[in-house]
Amino acid sequence: MNDSISGKQACKLSSNQIITGKWKKTQYEIIRELGCGATGSVYLARSARGLSALKISDDSMAITSEVNVLRQISRVQGPSLGPHFYETDDFASPRGILAFYTMEYIKGTPFLAFVRGRGPEWAGILTVQLLKDLHFLHKQGWIFGDLKPENLLAGEAPYHIRWIDPGGITKEGRSIKEYTEFFDRGYWGLGDRKAEASYDLFSVSMLLINTAYPGRFEKTQEKGTERLLEKTRDSERLVPFLPVIRKGLEGRYSNALEMREELLLLLQGASFRNVAAGRGATQKRMSPVSRQKRRQAAQVYAPGAKKVSRWSGVLETMVAASFLLILYILYLVGQTV
């Protein structure tokens, strides 16, 4: 514990501090801290290149491992995966030599904050994108490992999910090197920590559950699956995702693409049902007498105006919003196939 604390202190940088690479002599001005994890701290920095994310650590082996992952993925990645790698170097600090590397700074909104601000349907839309990217990553022989909202951003419009921390990415077949308990199947007693596709897909199910329980919750004496499915059924926003969440928790998907296709079908079905439900609910609420009264009220408050009720406007808005959501989902499919 003391080693961990001293390591974090060693990596503590101040705003406006200038650090210079020992070998390449590139100068970076520290702007602010972006995050701090088990293997080091990440800062927003400015150099002659422009803005970048700079990760610094007293664990040179961890930095070397992450750089190797970033270099390999940067060569083959699609447009929506993780940050591009820039360079690596050492920094001679007052507390000794620290290793660091710089990568693309991705502007965006944290996953949970984005879903909270835009609406629960976006949890499904962003997860569809994430599953496509995971499938690509898995095909290259890598497992994300530490998959959690803190490592995901919704990039600026057109909105697309991006991952921002390569620290947990592990070669397929090895032991997961970093994990967060809530998203770890080992913690819930539902599998081991072997780096394989099903490990990431379990975390995807937990990611969806986390959108309804941002404070998270701990395991109990109940069997892991029962506890998690009970929490899923207790949340109105999660019930539509229940079939996909269950199969992800139980490891019944052979790959990320299969999970993505089923989630996409659920999203499309839910959108059409919302349109129909909105139309039916509006018709039930408006009896003939109510419609007549609304027409009379419209004539009183807006003589000569077009006779359109407030309820029809609400219905039109609901239909338009649902239709746009469907179109956006179809657009995303076209972009990621």
Rank of each mutant, 00 (worst) to 15 (best):
Q221G: 15
E236N: 13
L208K: 04
T232Y: 12
G189E: 03
P214V: 09
V244D: 06
R185H: 10
F183V: 06
L228I: 04
V239T: 13
L238N: 01
G215Y: 15
R252W: 05
A256K: 00
S203D: 05
K177G: 14
I245S: 05
I209T: 05
Y253I: 04
R174N: 15
Y187C: 08
K223P: 14
L208P: 03
E250R: 03
S235E: 09
R193T: 12
T220E: 07
L190W: 10
F217M: 11
S175G: 12
R174I: 06
P240K: 05
L242C: 08
L229G: 02
E230H: 11
T225L: 15
L207E: 01
K223C: 14
Y213E: 12
E250Y: 05
T211P: 09
M206L: 08
K219N: 11
E222Y: 14
K219M: 08
L238W: 02
D192G: 14
E236R: 15
D192N: 13
F183D: 04
A197H: 02
E250W: 02
R216M: 10
N255M: 08
G251A: 01
L229E: 12
D234H: 06
K177C: 13
V239Y: 11
E178A: 12
D234P: 00
L190V: 01
S205T: 07
E181S: 12
Y179S: 15
E230A: 14
R237F: 11
K247L: 13
P240C: 09
N210W: 08
L201N: 05
E230T: 11
Y199N: 05
R237M: 14
A195Q: 01
T220R: 07
D184P: 02
E181V: 08
G224M: 02
G248P: 06
Y213G: 13
E178D: 11
K194A: 09
K194L: 06
E181Q: 10
M259Q: 06
L207D: 01
A195E: 04
S254A: 13
R246Y: 10
P240G: 05
E178M: 06
P240M: 11
D184K: 04
E178N: 10
L242F: 10
L208S: 00
E226D: 13
E181M: 12
E222F: 13
G186P: 09
L242N: 04
I245Q: 05
L249Q: 03
I176H: 02
F241H: 04
V244E: 10
G224V: 09
K219P: 09
K223G: 15
Y199Q: 05
K231Q: 10
P243A: 09
K219F: 11
F182S: 07
A197R: 04
R246M: 12
I245T: 06
S254T: 11
